[in-house]
């Protein structure tokens, strides 16, 4: 049996980087894939990590663009998901 959860895990293993690309490759609706991904995160099979593009909020203390990662620019943060291996 290969349901949406298996599909998502296979796509993560294959290094597919976005829901849209997963949907294009598998034909499964993006909404279903997103729900499956959320479920895998909720059940601990996939780990999430929030990634901010830009400098840390407090600045680095030594660069020419310190403070650039502060404030509302975090609107476009990425979420990085990686498969958790069974221990």
């Amino acid at each position: 049996m290969s349901g949406p959860l298996s599909v998502v895990l296979e796509q993560v293993e294959a290094g597919i980087s976005s829901i849209a690309e997963m949907s294009r490759r598998t034909g499964v609706a993006p909404d279903v894939l997103r729900a499956s991904l959320d479920h895998l995160v909720r059940t601990g099979r996939i780990a999430t990590q929030s990634l901010a593009i830009g400098c840390p909020p407090a600045g680095c203390g030594g660069c020419a663009v310190k403070g650039c990662g502060s404030g509302e620019s975090s609107r476009t943060n990425l979420t990085l998901l990686s498969r958790r291996r069974a221990s």
């Binding site: 796509q11 993560v12 293993e13 294959a14 290094g15 597919i16 980087s17 976005s18 829901i19 849209a20 991904l37 996939i46 609107r75 476009t76 943060n77 990425l78 979420t79 990085l80 998901l81 990686s82 498969r83």
Partner: peptide, 12 residues
């Protein structure tokens, strides 16, 4: 190389 998925924010 460890696989990963990037959940992109919608355009705005």
């Amino acid at each position: 190389v460890e696989p990963l998925v990037i959940d992109l924010p919608a355009y705005q």
